[in-house]
Amino acid sequence: MKNITIPENFSVEEASEYRKKLNELIENGEKDFTLDFSNCTFIDSTGLGVLVGVYKKCNELNGNFVVQSITNPQVLKIFKLTRLDKVFNIAK
């Protein structure tokens, strides 16, 4: 299980960097990810798009995709508004 720490602001600049990093890990055989949101205070649609893309690839490979430690209420609200809290495995 590869543990990835999500940055404080998971928006356009950071999201494209993380997309590249996560896709490289998948290409190298990694399919199990734990995404740590304990530092994240903001996520935009680009950040959500990266998560959805990686989630789909992990699913295709029968991998695991866990989102954990969403401590910021605004970030959790975005997951609930987009109903991604019903799609992703969100751990405390």
Rank of each mutant, 00 (worst) to 15 (best):
D85L: 05
N72E: 12
T71N: 15
A15G: 08
C58K: 05
V12Q: 09
G47A: 05
E17W: 02
N64M: 02
T5L: 09
F65C: 14
E13Q: 09
G47D: 07
S38Y: 00
Q68K: 15
L35E: 06
P7M: 08
V67D: 05
L35C: 10
L84Y: 12
E27V: 00
E8K: 15
G49E: 02
G47W: 03
G47R: 02
K21A: 09
F79P: 01
E13A: 12
I90D: 13
Q74M: 12
V67Q: 05
E24P: 02
E13V: 07
E24N: 15
S45L: 08
I43K: 03
F37M: 10
P73W: 02
G53T: 13
P73I: 10
L81Y: 07
T71Q: 14
F37I: 13
N59T: 10
F10Q: 09
G53V: 07
V67N: 05
N23K: 13
T34V: 15
P7D: 06
L48A: 00
S16E: 15
N59K: 15
F65R: 11
D85W: 05
F65N: 13
E8I: 15
L51S: 10
V87H: 05
L22K: 06
K92P: 01
I26S: 03
V67Y: 08
I90W: 09
I90L: 12
I78F: 01
E14P: 01
P7L: 05
K56G: 00
S11C: 10
E8Y: 00
K86D: 13
E27F: 04
Y18K: 12
V54K: 04
N64R: 10
I6E: 04
I26P: 03
L81R: 03
K20L: 14
T71I: 09
F88Y: 07
N62I: 03
N3S: 05
F88T: 14
L81N: 08
E30P: 03
T34D: 08
D85N: 15
N59E: 14
T71P: 02
V66G: 04
I90K: 08
F65W: 11
N59Y: 09
K80A: 10
D36H: 04
T46W: 00
N9Q: 13
V50A: 06
P7F: 05
V52L: 14
D44R: 03
F33L: 06
L84K: 04
K56C: 00
Y55M: 06
V12K: 08
V87Y: 04
V52I: 15
L25T: 02
T82A: 11
N89W: 01
Q74W: 11
N39L: 13
G63K: 04
C58V: 10
S38D: 09
E27C: 04
S45T: 15
